Simulated scan of single mutants.
Amino acid sequence: MAENKTKPTKIDPATFIAAVEPDWKREDAETICALMERLSGHPPKMWGPSIIGFGQYHYTYESGREGDSMLTGFSPRKSALTLYIMAGFPRHEEIMARLGKHRTGQACLYVKRLSDIDMGALEELIAASLAHMRDKYDVS
């Protein structure tokens, strides 16, 4: 079985964030980092070269593949701030309706700027996702 490519690294998240350009994107990354740390109760940790994750859970698929992943996280990518909402979005329709300007993938929330979204709704979304993940998985 293939090994997960995205794993915790020894890269310092603060150093990574300090290098984010432009200034507004770095400020958005600092805001999200503080929010996710507060909500998760876990310090930031780099997962791979560009993802900042919080907490960890262990999963096992029906196929037998298993591994570890972050409970939540984000990456300040060039095209958008990518937030990893591991529980997905269908169970959070009411919150998503209030969120503001965004796009989604399966477990990714794409936001151009934090000023485009309702921060209260984002906080609710992250908290609800974390609660779901803690209920469903063995969390460390």
Rank of each mutant, 00 (worst) to 15 (best):
S140L: 08
A87Y: 03
G105F: 05
R77S: 07
K10M: 02
A97F: 03
A107S: 15
Y57R: 08
Y61D: 03
I95G: 02
K7S: 05
K112H: 15
S75N: 05
I17Q: 05
A121S: 13
T6L: 15
K10H: 07
A2S: 13
F89C: 09
M133I: 08
H132P: 00
L130Q: 02
K7Y: 02
H132R: 08
R134L: 01
G48R: 04
S50D: 08
S40G: 10
M70P: 13
A121N: 07
S50P: 09
H42I: 00
L71A: 05
A80C: 08
M96E: 08
E94H: 06
N4F: 01
W47I: 04
T6H: 02
E124L: 03
P90I: 00
T104I: 15
Y61S: 06
D12W: 00
S69N: 10
R91N: 13
R26M: 09
T9F: 04
D118H: 10
A127W: 03
T72P: 09
I52W: 08
I52A: 12
L122R: 06
H58K: 14
L122N: 06
G53S: 08
E37Q: 15
L109P: 11
R77F: 01
A18G: 08
T9C: 05
Y61W: 11
K10A: 13
K78R: 12
L83R: 06
L83T: 06
K25E: 13
R77E: 04
K78A: 12
I85R: 11
I117S: 06
K136N: 04
F74S: 08
P43T: 09
D12N: 15
V111C: 12
G73F: 02
A107F: 01
T72D: 04
V111R: 12
M96T: 08
W47K: 09
T72C: 15
L39S: 05
D118I: 05
R77I: 02
E94F: 01
V139Q: 02
T9V: 01
F74L: 06
E27F: 05
G120V: 05
D68T: 13
T31Q: 12
I51M: 13
R65W: 00
S69Y: 12
A97N: 14
W24K: 13
S75P: 10
I85N: 09
A80F: 08
I52M: 12
G67E: 07
L71S: 12
K112T: 14
P13Y: 03
K25F: 01
S63W: 03
Y137I: 00
L81Q: 13
H132T: 10
K5L: 11
T6G: 01
L122G: 06
I52V: 15
A97S: 15
F54V: 07
H102A: 12
R91C: 00
L81N: 10
R65N: 13
A14N: 11
G53D: 06
R98C: 10
E30D: 10
V139E: 04
L109F: 04
I17L: 12
Y137M: 03
T72Q: 04
A80W: 03
W47C: 10
S50F: 00
N4A: 10
W24I: 13
M119Q: 15
H102Y: 15
R103F: 04
L35Q: 12
Q106A: 14
R65L: 08
M133R: 07
Q56L: 03
E66C: 10
T60Y: 01
Y59A: 06
R91F: 09
A18K: 09
